[in-house]
């Protein structure tokens, strides 16, 4: 019984290690296409259009409401200790340091990441990736690298949009609804917000963009057969990306901030 348990443990461990190794090789091989031209700029632009531009509405909407709810909750809490004037920094720092990068990444993973996995999985199952290989074309260069580059660029820009819209949402509630002076709201933000906060947020969004694109492409590229395989790959891509983003967020926060 004990030996069986150890065997099972060993087998599970090696399977996961093998998967981790394969996904690592996949990442390195994909990124190495950046070093050896040609880089498919047209495909990168198309991917930015899909991952970034088409997510803008969603990011604006969720950013605004996140800022608004932060402002509402923050005002009520700060009022208890007589520090309502610090509402601006509370909203801005929460968004820039933490909520902006994380929520934007999770939203983009749900909207664009799942679609990317499904698209690549269908291409794999319909033998389009095999066809590409037989033409002597590297699918990593044509499908994966443009997605990774676009993921990094798009998520960084979307995070900025999320932050700005969120701060404006906070302003709407704090200043227009709760009658905090506008000068106090923005003045305190400029007083407490430091460059390190902004840079830390950028680091996070850059790495989240890469994680999202990497995991979603990997799951699609090595999908199981048929519709079931593709649907399983899509679910796994969204779940794994989201979990990895949150875990990585903890490590980045503990190192950067």
């Amino acid at each position: 019984m004990f030996v069986k348990f150890i065997l099972l443990l060993g087998r599970t461990g090696t399977t996961h290690l093998r998967r981790l190794g394969r996904s690592g090789i996949f990442l390195v091989e994909s990124l190495s296409c950046l070093v050896f031209p040609p880089i498919k700029w047209g495909r990168i632009v198309k991917r930015i259009q899909f991952i970034g531009w088409q997510s803008t509405g969603l990011i604006c909407l969720t950013g605004a409401f996140t800022g608004m709810v932060l402002s509402l909750q923050g005002y009520n809490t700060l009022k208890r200790v007589g520090s309502e004037a610090l509402l601006g920094p509370l909203v801005a720092l929460s968004l820039i340091r933490e909520l902006g990068p994380v929520l934007a990444a999770l939203l983009v993973t749900g909207r664009a990441g799942s679609a990317l996995t499904a698209e690549i999985a269908i291409m794999r199952n319909n033998e389009q990736i095999d066809a590409m290989e037989l033409m002597g074309l590297n699918p990593l260069r044509y499908l994966v690298l443009p997605t990774m580059v676009a993921g990094v660029i798009s998520l960084t820009l979307l995070t900025w949009i999320f932050d700005v819209v969120g701060i404006l949402g906070g302003y709407l509630i704090g200043v227009k609804l709760l009658a905090l002076p506008a000068g106090t709201y923005f003045g305190e933000i400029s007083r407490y917000l430091e460059m390190d906060d902004i840079v830390g947020g950028i680091y996070k969004s850059l790495s989240f963009g890469l994680i999202m694109a990497w995991i979603c492409c990997y799951k699609g590229y090595f999908t199981g057969l048929g519709a079931e395989g593709a649907s399983k790959a899509t679910t796994q891509a969204v779940v794994t990306s989201s979990v990895f983003i949150l875990i990585w967020d903890f490590f980045v926060t503990s190192v950067v901030f």
């Binding site: 319909n126 389009q128 066809a131 037989l134």
Partner: peptide
């Protein structure tokens, strides 16, 4: 391998056209 594959043509069961 690429040079060898340049000598090949492959018609897949599904056609494998890029949709």
């Amino acid at each position: 391998l690429e040079t060898i594959r340049r000598r090949y043509g492959f018609v897949f069961q599904s056609g494998a056209l890029f949709d």
